[in-house]
């Protein structure tokens, strides 16, 4: 009998803490991307949150035991549509863009960035000797401007964290890794798009900036 119990304990050991739900949090917004001057002060407007186009919305991921069985939920502390939009805004600001969130641009040449989050899911891949929490982030960006630009692009990123044990920390690291990759990829693509149209995002001359007043007050 003790041998059977020992066998059972050994068999279920790989399950670890896979039976308890957990929550992942967005990474520190100041550390999603390395600071740079790619944006050269160009102004962009981001609509946050993005649209939520995920097929699975009730959770952000799942835990599995060592036998590849779904055993618990992974939740997000903020909705993925908010998560991705805010991370992109932080990444653009870190990259030298002047980012306005949910505000009108200061000129018709200010591009507006909207997005659809199509995938955001954290899930471990169970290998023979490793347990790899993977995070998939799929986003479609729409960049428009009052001057007539309309451009779309789909992105898909995967973050991973090789480990022998699937602790909650590795799930968090995986989500943070995917977020950093997503932000780096999207910031690079947005920069490349705006570089094609030098008139976009350029702030009005300084004299006009000085004329701007807080909303609701007269100059």
């Amino acid at each position: 009998m003790s041998a059977v119990c020992g066998l059972a304990a050994l068999l279920f050991a790989p399950a670890g803490c896979a039976f308890t739900d957990m929550t992942v949090h967005p990474p520190d917004p100041t550390r999603v991307v390395a600071p740079s001057s790619l944006g050269r002060g160009r102004e962009v407007v981001i609509t946050a949150p993005f649209a939520d186009a995920r097929a699975i919305r009730k959770r952000c991921g799942m835990k599995k035991n060592g036998y590849n069985v779904d055993t618990a939920d992974v939740h997000c502390s903020v909705t993925p549509s908010e998560w991705v939009a805010r991370a992109l805004a932080a990444g653009l600001a870190q990259s030298g863009f002047n980012v306005l969130i949910n505000q009108p641009g200061s000129s018709p040449a200010t591009p507006r960035i909207e997005g659809d989050v199509v995938t955001f899911f954290v899930e471990p891949k169970i290998n023979l000797f490793t347990y790899v929490p993977e995070t998939d982030i799929g986003v479609t960006l729409h960049v428009t401007s009052p001057t007539g630009l309309a451009a779309d692009r789909s992105f898909y990123f995967k973050g991973g964290q090789d480990t022998f044990l699937g602790t909650d920390d590795t799930f968090q690291d995986s989500a943070s890794d995917a977020t950093r990759k997503a932000v780096a990829g999207m910031v690079g693509a947005i920069t490349e798009l705006l570089d094609r149209y030098p008139q976009l995002g350029v702030l009005p001359p300084a004299g006009r900036i000085s004329m701007l007043t807080p909303a609701g007050s007269e100059p």
Partner: peptide, 28 residues
């Protein structure tokens, strides 16, 4: 029972470039 995709599929899910539906005109 996987929701995440195989890493080998990721490049095919990334668009290579922007789809430009309309070009910006000169700001007036």
């Amino acid at each position: 029972r996987y929701v995440v995709v195989d890493p080998a599929m990721v490049p095919s899910l990334n668009a290579r470039d922007w789809t430009i539906r309309s070009q910006p005109g000169v700001s007036t």
